[in-house]
């Protein structure tokens, strides 16, 4: 799980081009969207592709993403339970 969380943080920073942010800046329970890290609906779409590509999880409704991408903790838990690769 810890490895997955680290991997998620690295991927999020890279995929979303968060230039000034390091892995250490993101705590496991930090809110990623809105006031937290400041991510928005386009970032959510980027993360949906990441779920598909890296973990074989397909979401069809972008609204599902909102709950899943609540924090690194929540994401890691969801991925662990649903991953197909």
């Amino acid at each position: 799980m810890e490895v997955l969380k680290q991997e998620l943080k690295e991927n999020i920073i890279e995929q979303l081009n968060l230039e000034d942010i390091t892995v250490e800046d993101i705590a496991d329970n930090d809110v990623l969207f809105g006031d937290g890290l400041g991510l928005d609906s386009i970032d959510a779409l980027e993360l949906i592709v990441m779920l598909d590509k890296n973990y074989g999880i397909k979401l069809t409704d972008p609204k599902e993403g909102r709950a899943i991408f609540g924090s690194i903790e929540v994401m890691a838990k969801y991925i662990t339970e649903h991953r197909t690769k």
Binding site: Q15, I42, L45, E46, V49, D52, K53
Partner: peptide
Amino acid sequence: KYLTPTSFI
């Protein structure tokens, strides 16, 4: 496959 929206936008 695996296309992301940012570059399209």
